[in-house]
Amino acid sequence: MLIRTPSDILSSEITPESVYLKRRQFMQGIGIGATALGLGLPATGLAASEDPRKDLEFSPVVAKADNPFYTDENMPSFAQASSYNNFYEFGTDKTDPAKNAHTLTTDPWSVQVEGDVAKPGSYPLEDIMKLMTLEERIYRLRCVEAWSMVIPWVGFSLAEFIKMFGPTSNAKYVEFTTLYRRSEMKGQRSAFSVIDWPYTEGLRMDEAMHPLAFMSVGMYGKTLPNQNGAPIRLVVPWKYGFKSIKSIVKMRFTSIRPKTSWQGIAPEEYGFYANVNPEVSHPRWSQAYERRLPSSLLSPSRIKTEMFNGYGEQVAGLYKGMNLRRHY
């Protein structure tokens, strides 16, 4: 059963800007005070206790039932959404990224654009932020592990972003690459990892240009926490979560379908398309049901999974005539 609750949860989850700024001043005050008293508190200790996220200016999503960019389904709190993550660069346990991702430096950051485009090059994030207009999207995120969450993202349309680089007619696919930096990413140093770093993902050009495909730079009104893919990540709501690659440093446009990380690890388990599909079950998990998080033991919120994660009306046309059992 789907339990719908009013969307006013959203406003209570977002810390008002004034309170946020006051807290910031307070924390800075403590820092200065401590130094003045010669307490010699380590600067990192203070930095860690301060929320490094910055407020973002964006246009809020239009809260209408027929708006595909919006849903009124129950949302996790920011604390929950930022402490339950799959980001193997920082460990394989769901709670590892929140513990380990603070080591990542996200400033300076740039995205390398390569391949079949008119304007290749290295694009610094601050330039990207100036050129793009930020908006909010509230999407369902369905993980291949049969759990899901509703997340209020902040970012811009991937199509608008791609248009900036002028892809040529040769560009049939776009490949995304996550940062590879062993010194800051604990999981990349692990001897037990099955992933051949760096992590890569890909989309067909028409998928990438679809209005639902989104580049996120924030969530819950602020910049992304590192464990959620800071400073810039992909969000493709009709595909399993692993397609929504995090901490992107490279976008390569190509005529050949790129090999994605999970395809390389287990091609019989993870296809290139990875569209949410309750009828095609994964060898490890039935995809017919999902646990909508947060859940509790008394109300496990076990719901039926919808084709294309409920975005079929918008995206089914992309796959007309394709056998989705074969092209999973």
Binding site: S83, Y84, K94, W147, L293, P300
Partner: peptide, 15 residues
């Protein structure tokens, strides 16, 4: 942990 709801965001998986 179950009674104090501190099994995390996905208590089922945690259990």
């Amino acid at each position: 942990a179950a009674l104090t709801q501190s099994l995390g965001t996905d208590p089922v998986k945690s259990l």
